[in-house]
Amino acid sequence: MALTDLITAFLLLGSLGFFLAGTLGLLRFPDLYCRLHALTKADNLGLGLVVLALMIQSDSWQVVIRLLLIWLLVLVAGATVAHLIARKAQQDGHQPWRR
């Protein structure tokens, strides 16, 4: 029991790191496209770690599948939305930031 709790705590701390990095990227990155990168990748990984942490704590496989479904839905929706927003920005003529 103590070991699963330890792993859960470890995963949750990791997820916090990615959520913080996602927010930091949203604020620091220079243009829309870069900010989209931060949101889709860092936040989805953060949520993935939360889901994994809760899976370890669950005692029924029904709960495990349910968590997995929620994560998959957010993953697919997030990737699709990121593409739609980037495409719209492209078609509106937003030039990507260059160093």
């Binding site: 953060g46 997030g78 939305v81």
Partner: peptide, 11 residues
Amino acid sequence: LAAQLFGTTAV
């Protein structure tokens, strides 16, 4: 994009 962040984090 902030709303997008809100979505994932709120879940």
